[in-house]
Design a protein around this nucleic acid. Structure first.
Length: 100
DNA sequence: CTGCTGACGGTTC
DNA sequence: GGAACCGCCAGCA
């Protein structure tokens, strides 16, 4: 189970994400040292979220909207609200819930 | 090796 | 304010 450097860096950032806060894919990548690695973050969340126990639901796009469609978005919305994050009906999150 | 894909982002019109 | 386009890079057929 050895991951590439970028993967490990991204995993580290995600695990440090505080409860009740959200972050954008781009921010995660940026903090991990990969300014334009948003797509790698996406990959990691979709394929390693369960095995690495990542808070995948705390990651949304920069517009504060849930990037998933269908049930996934519904579940993410529920998980976020359970942590105190306010999500509008359209699945939009206010900037004040973003880290930094 | 080549090409396609994706839970994105920034710019442009 | 929003749609369209392009760039990004790792994984996979």
């Amino acid at each position: 189970m050895s991951y590439s450097e970028s993967t490990i860096a991204i995993l580290t950032i995600l695990k440090q994400l505080p409860v009740g806060k959200v972050i954008s894919y781009g921010e995660v990548a940026k903090l991990a040292g990969y300014p334009n690695g948003a797509r790698q973050v996406v990959r990691i969340l979709s394929s390693l979220s369960d095995t690495e126990h990542l808070p995948w639901h705390r990651v949304v796009n920069k517009q504060g909207q849930i990037a998933l469609s269908g049930e996934g978005a519904f579940i993410q919305k529920a998980l976020l609200e359970a942590e105190g994050v306010v999500v509008s009906d359209e699945g939009k999150i206010d900037r004040r819930f973003f880290v930094s």
